[in-house]
Simulated scan of single mutants.
Amino acid sequence: MLHPIRIGAVTAALLVAAGCSRSMSPYSDNGPPPLAPVPTGQVAANQLPPPPPPPPPGDGFGNGETMSSDAEMSPGGNQGDLSASPDQNTQVASASRPALSRNSVLGAYKVTTDGGNCQIILSLTKWSGGYRAASRGCPGKVADVSAWDVSGSQVVLKDSAGTNVANLNSSGDARYEGRTTGGQSITLYR
């Protein structure tokens, strides 16, 4: 007796499920109405204008501002004095080493240093001691780099207190070589 009841219950459930799956569509059995055609026309193929010219050399800002003079950047104001001692970290741009601009230096670099390889990113975000720098996986004093700036023909890497960590000279296309204040050799390149 339970068997016919089960069959009846299952049949009723199937009919209800079949009735639920069939809904009345406002589009009847033909599906949705067709979409309006997209307007067609000629596609223009023009050349893009040439890119704007790069900023003039030595102008690291691109907006007419010029970098501070070396004398303004030095606490002693003797950057241009050739008789200053090398211990005072004074550097003068010479004909063989033209002054660098911040824009020409900023970006990501691979770093080779005594003790391993790592990465340094130099940005133009103002930071204590100059502009923001971030080192990644660097050993020794290079791990302390958190700021940078350009001084004449040198790239100066600094720690968060603004203390010099390394002075680097340009040695070619996007390559800078020097030593940390602790004597560790360091090369930045792309």
Rank of each mutant, 00 (worst) to 15 (best):
G137S: 08
W148M: 01
S123C: 02
P50M: 10
G107C: 08
P86V: 08
D81T: 01
L48V: 13
A71Q: 09
G60P: 02
W127G: 09
V150K: 02
S94R: 09
P34E: 07
P75R: 09
L48D: 12
P54N: 05
A84Y: 01
D114P: 00
V92D: 01
S160G: 06
A84E: 01
D59I: 02
A44I: 15
V105K: 01
A108E: 11
S101W: 01
V111K: 04
N30S: 14
S28T: 13
P75E: 07
P52R: 13
A134F: 13
L100P: 01
P33Y: 10
S153I: 07
N117M: 08
V165Y: 05
S96G: 03
Q47P: 09
K141N: 13
G76F: 12
P57N: 03
W148I: 03
P33E: 09
S153N: 14
R136H: 15
V38L: 12
P57K: 07
S74R: 11
F61S: 05
P34Q: 04
N117W: 00
T125A: 10
N63D: 15
A93F: 02
L82F: 09
D81L: 02
I120G: 01
S104Y: 04
S160D: 09
I121P: 00
G31E: 03
N30H: 15
K141Q: 14
S68R: 14
P75V: 06
D29W: 15
T125Q: 12
T66K: 14
L106Y: 08
F61A: 05
S153P: 06
V150G: 00
K158V: 03
S101Y: 00
N89S: 11
